[in-house]
């Protein structure tokens, strides 16, 4: 079979569900170094990733993160059933020793969690450094929004050939099932530029770094949309910043 004939089978091969004889055909092409099939399979794996990432649904329970870290040995797990039983049946001295051990154990767990939080803050600091680099770049254009409006939000947009940074204040956190979506508008045509949210204090910092430089843009706008985003705005912009 030719590569063109096999092309529709790449995804099934990548998913591990392609049957014979097509499966052996794809494998034979790959084993003889067929670049077209290798590239096609790369596309298929990207497509499979997008299919898997496209689902909606609830967030995982909060305790799952700690459970995984404990299982990997990162954070000690709090398992005391045997110990509790022993203390209940045992002497006062043993109970006191148990209490000390328990406190020490908790302290270690909290210390490990604190280290993780510090690491996370470090990652956020790295993100912030990127944002500062964009703000300080000589090519960056800066505009304000909301200053002439009777009601917030207010803030600034920094537009650079490599990305767009939006900083907003008094932007209410979106209600459940909703998110903010940024748009780059050129000639009246909005192009989606990513989803973000604000924190409980109504502050948002959002950096959009597209894989290719954004085209010349007339207006940066933000609308409130359904979680997961939409292809075109469905509501009146809550932020509109002409460049």
């Amino acid at each position: 079979m030719t590569c063109d004939e096999l092309r529709p089978d790449y995804l099934l091969y990548a998913l591990g569900v392609l049957e014979e004889p097509e499966r052996s055909e794809v494998r034979a092409h790959l084993e003889r170094g067929c670049e077209a099939c290798a590239a096609g399979l790369g596309e298929a794996r990207a497509l499979a990733f997008a299919m898997g990432a496209s689902g909606d649904g609830p967030a995982p329970p909060r305790q799952l993160r700690g459970r995984i870290l404990a299982a990997a040995g990162g954070v000690p797990q709090r398992r005391w059933s045997w110990f509790t039983a022993l203390v209940a049946a045992g002497s006062t001295a043993l109970a006191a020793a148990g209490l000390i051990l328990y406190q020490a154990h908790n302290f270690r767990a909290e210390l490990a969690e604190a280290r993780i939080e510090i690491e996370r803050s470090g990652a956020e600091a790295a993100d912030l450094r990127q944002a500062l680099d964009l703000i300080q770049a000589p090519e960056t254009r800066e505009v304000t929004f909301g200053q002439d409006q009777p009601a917030p939000p207010r803030g600034r947009v920094f537009f650079h050939p490599s990305g767009v940074l939006l900083v907003a204040s008094r932007l209410p956190a979106p209600p459940p099932g909703k998110t903010y979506e940024m748009w780059l508008i050129r000639g009246g045509k909005p192009v989606p530029a990513g989803l973000f949210t604000s924190n409980r204090q109504g502050n948002a910092i959002y950096l959009y770094r597209p894989p290719t430089p954004p085209a010349a843009t007339d207006v940066v706008a933000v609308t409130l949309e359904a979680e997961g985003g939409v292809d075109a705005p469905t509501s009146t912009p809550v932020i509109s910043a002409p460049l």
């Binding site: 898997g52 990432a53 689902g55 609830p58 799952l64 993160r65 690491e119 996370r120």
Partner: peptide, 21 residues
């Protein structure tokens, strides 16, 4: 282990949603 925590923070929700579906 902190890197595992960060990996979970980036992809945990995506993985959970796929598996739950």
């Amino acid at each position: 282990p902190q890197a595992l925590a960060e990996l979970y923070d980036r992809y945990g929700q995506m993985v959970f949603r796929l598996i739950l579906r």
